[in-house]
Design a binder for these strands. Structure first.
Length: 421
RNA sequence: GGAGGGGUGGCCGAGUGGACGAUGGCGGCGGUCUUGAAAACCGUUUUCGCCUUUGGCGAACGUGGGUUCGAAUCCCACCCCCUCCGCCA
C-alpha cells in the first residue's frame, strides 16, 4: 500500500509510476474521497470534543439539567451519523488504496512487457548433446517417475504424480536448498501454515485484487497460500520489532496453490505450470537504506543453487511494465532446459520496499526511544521446484535414457543414476 | 464438539458507570549519590489519526454491535487462551 500522504502531497509521482507500469487508477477519485473523509472527520472530532467536555461537567453536577442532556443526545445522534458516513468513505478509500501497485524504483528500466526486460548476466554453457535431448515429460514417463494420467484422474488437468525416484529427487532438492540457505547463507528456517486468514492475503497484496488466482475455503474463510511469501510477509504483522532486530532472513518450504485459470491450455505440457507445486522461498526484512544491497545478495543466494547444481542460467531484470504488483524492483533467474528448449523461470527476487510492511503493519524501532518505521521486505524463490526438477532431468539426461544425479544431491538421494525400473 | 475459567500498556497485575490512556510492581531510559558498580531515591517510559503543529483535539482496555449525556466497567454476538471431558495424525 502506498502512503496516502504521498498521494495527497505529490500525486504526480504516483501518476508517473502508474504510467511506467502501463497501469491506471482513479487518483482523482481517491483524492476526492480523502478530502471528504478528512472534512467529516474534523467535524466529528469537534463534536466529540464538545461532548467529552460537557459530559465531564455533567458528571460533577448534582442536578443534571435536562436541557443539556437533551442537547448532548442530539449531538450524539449527529456523531453517529457522521461515524457511519466516515466509515463508509474510509472503506471506499481503503479499497482503492489496496488496489494501487507499488512505485517502481528509480533505477528500474522503463518498458512495456517481458520483451523489454534486460539480461544482466548469465552463467554456464549449455551442454552439448551427442543425441537429441528429450523434454522432461518424455523422460519422466520413460523412467516411470512422472505419472500424468493418474494425476489428472485424481485432480484434473494441471495435476501430476511424482513416483519413486522422481518424488525422491524433488524431496532431495528441497532438503538440499534448505540446508544450503540455512547453513551457508544465514537464513532461519520457518515452517508456516499453508492456509491463512484473509488479512494475510491482504498484507501480502494477493487480496483484494488477485482473488481469482487463489483457492479458498468458504466455511472457515481460509486461503491456500500461492507462495510462502504470504505467511512470511505476515510473520511480524502488527508488531514493532525492537532495536537491533533487523535484518531478518527467513527461508521456508511450502507447497503452493494457484488457480492459473487464465491461459487454459498454455504451458499444459509437462510439469512446468501446475495448480500445486513446491517451492523454497527466501524472505528478508531490512532497514530501508539496506534493501538495495539485500536484494543483490538474495539474487546471489538463489543463483548459488543453480551453480552448485551446475545448470546454466541467466539473470534478467524486469522492466517497469513486467514488475509484480507489490514490487519496486525485481530480478528473475532462468535456468536452461535443453529438452523443451526453454529458459525456465525458477526464481523471481523482489524488493517490495515498504509496500507490504505498510499493508501488514509490520514496523521496527531503529533505536531505543525512536519512533517506529516501516522496514523493507524482500522475497525470492530459492528455488521453485518443478522447474528445477525439469532442468535437472533435461540437463543430466544420458544417451542410454538414464539421468545422472547431480553431485550435491547424491547424499540426499542415495544413488548416482536414475534408470527406468 | 461439550462444561467451566479467563483476555487491561513491553511483562505482571488493579480497576465493576463520570476527574481512567488507565493505581501499583517489574523491565527499559535519564539523573542524584559513588573511585566504579550495586542498593536507595527522583524523573521518564503505548500507538494511530486529524488540525490553524515549540501546540491542540480525537481514538484504542480481545473483535464487532448495543444501552447511556458519559462505558475498561452494563447488555448481545463472535474470536482467542487455559483446565477437564469427547474425538484424533
Amino acid at each position: 500500500m502506498l502512503d496516502i500522504k504521498l498521494i495527497r502531497d505529490d500525486p504526480e509521482v504516483v501518476r508517473q509510476a502508474l504510467e511506467k507500469r502501463g497501469d491506471s487508477a482513479p487518483l482523482d477519485e481517491i483524492l476526492r474521497l480523502d478530502e471528504r473523509w478528512r472534512q467529516l472527520l474534523r467535524e466529528m472530532e469537534t463534536l466529540r470534543a464538545e461532548r467529552n467536555e460537557v459530559s465531564k461537567r455533567l458528571g460533577r453536577m448534582a442536578d443534571k439539567p435536562p436541557q443539556l442532556i437533551a442537547d448532548m443526545r442530539r449531538i450524539g445522534e449527529r456523531i453517529s451519523s457522521l461515524e457511519a458516513e466516515i466509515g463508509q468513505l474510509g472503506a471506499e478509500l481503503e479499497d482503492h488504496l489496496l488496489r494501487l501497485p507499488n512505485i517502481p524504483a528509480a533505477d528500474v528500466p522503463v518498458g512495456n512487457d517481458e520483451r523489454d526486460n534486460i539480461e544482466v548476466r548469465s552463467w554456464g554453457q549449455p551442454r552439448h548433446f551427442s543425441f537429441t535431448p528429450l523434454p522432461h515429460w518424455e523422460l519422466g514417463e520413460r523412467l516411470g517417475i512422472i505419472d500424468f494420467q493418474r494425476g489428472v484422474k485424481l485432480s484434473g488437468s494441471r495435476f501430476y504424480i511424482l513416483r519413486g525416484l522422481g518424488a525422491h529427487l524433488q524431496r532431495g532438492l528441497i532438503a538440499f536448498m534448505l540446508d544450503l540457505h540455512t547453513n551457508e547463507h544465514g537464513y532461519t528456517e520457518i515452517y508456516p501454515p499453508f492456509m491463512v486468514k484473509r488479512e494475510c492475503m491482504v498484507g501480502s497484496s494477493n487480496l483484494p485484487k488477485f482473488a481469482d488466482n487463489l483457492y479458498h475455503d468458504e466455511e472457515d474463510d481460509l486461503w491456500f497460500v500461492p507462495t510462502a511469501e504470504v505467511p512470511l510477509t505476515n510473520l511480524h504483522r502488527d508488531e514493532i520489532l525492537p532495536p537491533g532486530s533487523l535484518p531478518l532472513h527467513y527461508v521456508a518450504y511450502t507447497a503452493c496453490f494457484r488457480r492459473e485459470k487464465m491461459a487454459a491450455g498454455k504451458d499444459t505440457r509437462g510439469i512446468k505450470r501446475g495448480h500445486q507445486f513446491d517451492k523454497v522461498e527466501l524472505y528478508k526484512f531490512t532497514e530501508p537504506e539496506a534493501s538495495d544491497d539485500a536484494l543483490d545478495r538474495m539474487v546471489k543466494d538463489a543463483e548459488d543453487v543453480c551453480r552448485r547444481l551446475d545448470i546454466p542460467y541467466r539473470v534478467v531484470q524486469l522492466c517497469t511494465g513486467d514488475l509484480g504488483f507489490a514490487s519496486a524492483k525485481s530480478f528473475d533467474i532462468e535456468m536452461w532446459a535443453p529438452g523443451c528448449g526453454e529458459w525456465l523461470e525458477v526464481s523471481s527476487c523482489s524488493n517490495c520496499s515498504d509496500f507490504q510492511a505498510r499493508r501488514a503493519n509490520s514496523r521496527y524501532r531503529p533505536k531505543p526511544q525512536a519512533g517506529p518505521r516501516f522496514p523493507h521486505t524482500l522475497n525470492g524463490s530459492g528455488l521453485a521446484l518443478p522447474r528445477v526438477l525439469i532442468s535437472v532431468l533435461e540437463n543430466y539426461q544420458q544417451a542410454d535414457g538414464s539421468v545422472t544425479v547431480p553431485e550435491p544431491l547424491r547424499p540426499y538421494i542415495g544413488t548416482e543414476t536414475i534408470r527406468a525400473s
